[in-house]
Computed example of a mutant assay.
Amino acid sequence: MGHPHRIGVVGAGWISGAYLETLRDHPGVTLAAVADLDASRAASFAAGVAGCRALPLEELLSDPSIETVLNLTVPAAHAAIAQATIENNKHLYGEKPLAADLTAARSVVEKAAAAGLTVGCAPDTVLGTGVQTARATIDAGLIGRPISAVAVMATPGHERWHHNPDFYYQPGGGPLLDMGPYYVTALVHLLGPVTAVTGASSRRRTTRVIGIGARTGEQIPVLVDTHVTGVLHHAGGALSTITTSFDAVRTTAAPIEVHGETGSLSVPDPNVFSGDVGLFPLGGTEWQTVPPSAGYVDAGRGIGLLDMLTAPTPRAGGAVALHVLDIMTSLLRAADEGHRIDLTTTVERPTPVPLTEAATWRS
Score class of each variant (00 low, 15 high):
223 L>T: 05
194 V>Q: 00
184 V>M: 12
224 V>S: 08
211 G>P: 01
193 P>T: 11
228 V>S: 11
221 P>V: 07
205 R>E: 14
223 L>P: 01
222 V>S: 01
217 G>F: 07
198 T>L: 11
198 T>Y: 09
202 S>E: 14
198 T>Q: 14
219 Q>I: 00
224 V>F: 05
214 A>G: 06
229 T>S: 14
196 A>Q: 04
218 E>W: 04
211 G>C: 04
184 V>L: 15
220 I>Q: 10
211 G>V: 01
196 A>W: 00
206 T>P: 03
229 T>Y: 04
216 T>G: 00
226 T>P: 01
205 R>L: 11
219 Q>R: 15
202 S>R: 15
216 T>N: 07
218 E>Q: 14
221 P>L: 00
202 S>L: 05
195 T>Y: 00
184 V>F: 12
192 G>T: 06
228 V>W: 08
208 R>D: 03
192 G>E: 07
228 V>A: 11
187 L>F: 13
223 L>K: 07
186 A>I: 14
214 A>P: 09
209 V>R: 15
225 D>M: 06
203 R>M: 14
195 T>M: 07
197 V>M: 12
222 V>I: 02
209 V>T: 15
210 I>E: 05
229 T>V: 13
192 G>M: 04
185 T>F: 12
188 V>T: 08
228 V>D: 11
193 P>V: 05
193 P>L: 03
205 R>T: 03
205 R>V: 03
199 G>N: 12
221 P>S: 09
204 R>V: 13
186 A>S: 14
192 G>V: 00
206 T>M: 02
198 T>M: 12
210 I>V: 12
226 T>I: 09
191 L>I: 07
199 G>M: 07
207 T>L: 03
202 S>H: 02
222 V>G: 05
184 V>P: 10
215 R>P: 02
207 T>A: 09
217 G>R: 10
192 G>F: 07
194 V>P: 01
212 I>Q: 08
222 V>Q: 01
203 R>F: 03
221 P>M: 08
209 V>L: 02
188 V>I: 15
208 R>H: 00
222 V>H: 02
187 L>G: 14
205 R>F: 04
190 L>S: 08
212 I>C: 13
191 L>N: 02
207 T>P: 06
202 S>T: 15
227 H>D: 15
204 R>P: 13
222 V>L: 02
185 T>W: 10
186 A>H: 12
219 Q>F: 04
189 H>R: 14
189 H>Q: 15
226 T>V: 12
194 V>E: 04
191 L>G: 08
208 R>A: 14
215 R>T: 01
